[in-house]
Amino acid sequence: MSFSSSRSSPQAAQAAPAAIDVTNLSHSFGNRWAVRNANFTVQTGSLHGFVGPNGAGKTTSLKAICTLLAPHSGTVRVFGQDVVLHSKSVRRTIGFMPDHFSMYRRMTVYEYLDFFGAAYGLTTAQRDRVIKDVLALTDMESRRDDLISGLSRGMQQRVSLARVLVSDPDLLLLDEPASGLDPRARIELMEILRELQLMGKTIFISSHILSELAELCDSVTIIDVGRIKYSGSMQALLQKNAEHPTYILGVQGQWPDLAERLQAVPGIVSAERVEGRPEYRIAFDWSVLDTSGLLRAVLDLGVTVVSFAEERRHLNEAFMDLTEGGLR
């Protein structure tokens, strides 16, 4: 694979400016604010999710980041460069995949990639090499001479991703890349994205498929009614509002007084039986007890443990908590 990976090391990521830095971004259409005073940062080398209900302002923010829309106020910087003042150089560092298929359907897959490669100023030899690589990455080598119009939706999505990669951008902006894809295509796309992150690309992905984003992304921004509701690490979001870490303990057999016995252990804040299941939800204080200490304490009680796992909020729950319902 011939993609650059200059931003892959953590040290380099520390030294480099943020991949995306949005400060007080506002944009309105008529008298309706699409985005209002949005602030968030995407670290270099991260896989950052961008989540929000329909009409929340995701696409407007994305278009401002990718230089297609001049914001009414605020600044957007990509790798330290202002997208309005240095749009041409910013465009060289980003690859944008819109939420709709943007294809020249009368071209073959190879011609399509070749055209964009040439438009980014690659020489014929460079294009040959890069196209070979991106086709291999997206598993489209066998369809290189097919007309785009004859490809399935999933394959067109792969070609679209291949097109984004032709110019070897450092930052990938993907707007709903998995929409309309079948489960297999979606899983394969996610695998490709993980691989790209390992190559050092920063990926900013807007999606509605929260379960996959939770697995894939290391940071997330939630936007609603044009305002940022959360921006930070995925880990922190999923633990947010949980004052004490909570674990689910699965036991074998009947333990009528186990909840009370657990509550008596120093450091355990609460212990309750999960309704209808041989499981207990245990919250504990980090300052008194760590996870291994908790497990040891449980085993000391003579309980036969069959499972022991941290209970995490789902991204769906966090999303529902942070966003408002209804049409807007």
């Binding site: 278009k63 990718c66 230089t67 297609l68 041409k88 150089s89 465009r91 060289r92 980003i94 944008f96 819109p98 709709h100 298929f101 943007s102 294809m103 020249y104 359907r105 964009f116 438009a119 980014y120 100023g121 097109r163």
Partner: peptide, 14 residues
Amino acid sequence: RERTLPLLMMLPIA
């Protein structure tokens, strides 16, 4: 019609 204008406008070409 093909919705390819955003891609063209994002090329590093004036």
